[in-house]
Design a protein around this nucleic acid. Structure first.
Length: 441
RNA sequence: GGAGAGGUGGCCGAGUGGUCGAAGGCGUCCGCCUGCUAAGCGGAUGUGGGGCUAAUAACCCCACCGAGGGUUCGAAUCCCUCCCUCUCCGCCA
């Protein structure tokens, strides 16, 4: 949520910045309603002041045994006026809030201006795509042949966009999760921020307010899986519970940055993605993801975003996967984000780079919604923190990338060095052994 | 799931209809005292919004005692609904 006062005092720059994102964001409607609101609010306050004075006087007179009938009558009539004004006030306040919740964040000045993803800017590459002496297979082929991926049985269980990992596949998933968490928590003092990540394990079901706090609600409600009987929502990303861990809190400046890493299952309905990426592990209703979340100070947040993105890049570099970094343009930016880098991993079978991590600075957009503040050094009024998060990284897509990038002609797949200690020393998945259990279910 | 107790400021904890934004304590900050520290003494110390202003100073006003409704001239205090915590019983990975 944007600060209404910022829009009021800085209307033109705000409008212009929002136009870069999307031509039809109704900020003028909100503005005129807000202006009407402030005079109504004053009116309401004056009436309350009157009523409070009368109540006080009645109390005083009663204690002295004086007659208070006339004052009580007067107070009743003021109350009638208050009720009228209040009705209007509440309605308008709700309206302004609802509209404000639907306005996206203002892009940072460093974000390339552009209408859609064709205007995104590549800002760096690491590793180079390998030359294949054969034509590389897509990961779902490799995985199925190795007997470690099973989409058919997943479909029986749950329908499309689900997967079953078997044997080495399941083990690989667990190894990736452990290695990523260990890598992130093991780093810290050497980083610019001078702090390590704190690992957290969080609920996968949250109240809808949490989704509003991080910006998924109200706009993207249809994207999430809901449990209406219990008024809970399945999280689409660990960002939601982890960022909201400090909901309505006032942190100390010395505690910043607060850095969390969490591995969670994520659930997405993928509504509107019909027919897109229907094969393989790329677009699933359920997937594992290691997420990095920072609460930091406004002064450092853009340097921090570089560090956070670097942390995610180290995961891909450590695995030996070729990737590039993309600065999203204004038109491609997510709703809550002021600046986003996507990391895209090379997928040899399709010959394209695919998003595997998205690292964003939300500035105070989420903090305002979720009420996350800090007390500046030396005291003073609490200020909103800046929140950031990034995948470090998506595990399902990493499995896909490993299978495709490290496949051999004989159908085997070489396991990245760093994962071997997590795989019982194993260095390669080979197709000879059937470990799917499919023959004897 | 059944029965009971309770949610008050950074923390502990008083407050059951008016003078309560809220006693007292702890913590924190500023002074005094002290060779230093501790102790002691004095003072300050919630959040958001609005007004006034050169001012992010002082002052004034409004709201906030888990959330939302209600009763009342007046609610932290009474009533209702919801959320959460704790205790006991039952069930259970």
């Amino acid at each position: 949520m944007l600060d209404i006062r910022r829009i009021l005092s800085d209307t033109d720059p705000c409008r212009k910045a929002l136009l870069n994102r999307n031509p039809d964001i109704p900020i003028d409607a909100v503005l005129s309603e807000e202006r009407a609101l402030s005079s109504l609010r004053k009116q309401w306050e004056t009436l309350r002041e009157n009523r409070n004075r009368l109540a006080e006087e009645i109390g005083r007179k009663k204690r002295q045994g004086e007659d208070t009938d006339r004052l009580m009558e007067e107070s009743r009539s003021v109350n009638g006026e208050i009720a009228l004004v209040e009705q209007d006030l509440v309605k308008r306040e709700e309206s302004v809030r609802e509209q404000l919740l639907l306005i996206p964040n203002i892009p940072h000045a460093s974000v390339p201006v552009g209408r859609d993803e064709t205007c995104n800017q590549e800002t760096g590459r690491q590793g180079s795509p390998r030359e294949f002496s054969f034509s590389p297979l897509p990961h779902w082929e490799i995985g199925t042949r190795l007997g470690i991926l099973d989409f058919d049985r997943a479909a029986v269980l749950s329908g499309s966009r689900f997967s079953v990992l078997t044997g080495d596949g399941a083990h690989l998933e667990r190894a990736l999760m452990s290695w990523m968490l260990d890598t992130h928590t093991g780093r810290g003092a050497s980083r610019r921020s001078g702090k390590a990540y704190t690992e957290v394990s969080v609920p996968l079901l949250v109240r809808p307010e949490m989704m509003e706090g991080t910006g998924q609600f109200p706009k993207f409600r249809e994207e999430s899986f809901q449990i209406p009987d219990d008024n809970l929502v399945l999280i689409p990303t660990a960002e939601v519970p982890v960022t909201n861990l400090n909901r309505n809190a006032i942190l100390e400046a010395d505690d910043l940055p607060v850095k969390y890493v969490a591995s969670t299952t994520c659930f997405r309905r993928e509504a509107g993605a019909a027919g897109k990426d229907t094969r393989g592990l790329i677009r699933q209703h359920q997937f594992l993801k290691v997420e990095l979340v920072w609460l930091t100070s406004p002064e450092t947040s853009y340097d921090d975003l570089e560090e956070l993105t670097g942390d995610a890049e180290q995961i891909l570099a450590g695995l030996g996967l070729p990737f590039r970094r993309i600065a999203l343009c204004t038109g491609d930016l997510g709703f809550s984000s002021a600046k986003t880098y996507d990391l895209e991993v090379w997928m040899p079978a399709q010959g394209v780079y695919r998003e595997i991590s998205s690292c964003s600075n939300f500035e105070d957009f989420q903090a305002r919604r979720a009420g996350i503040r800090y007390r500046p050094k030396g005291g003073g009024k609490p200020r909103l923190v800046h929140t950031m998060n990034g995948s470090g990284v998506a595990i399902g897509r990493t499995i896909a990338a490993i299978l495709e990038n490290f496949q051999e002609k004989d159908g085997s797949v070489v396991i990245p060095e760093v994962l071997r200690p997590y795989m019982g020393g194993k260095s390669r998945f080979t197709p000879e052994k059937s470990n799917s259990g499919k023959e004897n279910p």
